[in-house]
Amino acid sequence: MALKGNLRDFSITQLLNLINLAHKTGTLAIEGPKDTAWVSFRKGKLAYSQMGRDDSHLASSHYRAKKISPSQHKMIRARAGGMSDKELGLLLVNANYITQEDILASLQAEFIGTIHRLFTWAEGRFGFENNVLPPNDKILLRINLENIIIEGSRQLREWEQLQDEIPSLDIALKFTDRPGTKLQNINLSVEEWRVAKYIDPKNSIRQIANTTKMNDLEIRRIVYSLLQAGLIEMVRQEGLEVKPRQIGLPTKDTAEQKSLVNRIIDRIRSI
């Protein structure tokens, strides 16, 4: 099945949210107006990324991260021409040029940097290929997506879109029961923490906004970020009177109602 579309209609934060929640493994290719990006994921975590025209060689990543000098970069590229990233990484660590932590930190910065650039793309055709990953010689990481999604969601400014995403402030919020997601590990802003403190099925979004003295736009933006990161979900506020289910049938007698529905079922089956 396809996971295809355009960023104009389904944003990069929505895509990351989907990949995160569905624990997807595969590669997302995005064709922007000027460039193409490939971002790979393993079980819903960011594993690798490559921006079309960027040099993805490990030495170049470290040069851009200022972990090696221009002369070291030139020398490594000349001597390690046919070497894979994994082999080169091992060689650099053994030669005490850089540490293993440096390699992981540089790659993490590079991969997250690609996503940050994608946040600025207003449109671009995307397609996700399940179970397609970069070649074996590339170094793959496991970066949690929640923080990246929160950063991307903070950039959403359109009032209309926020209204569609959160149609009512009279609903409550609760933290999702997702194992492995700890709020303490997420880089929330001060405002986001203020809201998070009051998240409880007993409190409506409107009540949280009043308590934290936030206007509609501010509260919607924060709730949207937390929703996109899969940290919270919207629920009916506890303690509210639940309206009884209304079923439009021409009789009030339950036995008659059931008989009527069963007659419709039999008729539909026979069509």
Partner: peptide, 15 residues
Amino acid sequence: LDDAWDIEDMRIALR
């Protein structure tokens, strides 16, 4: 249709 999204992906996208 070929372009149809997977039903479980849609469930997440539609929340």
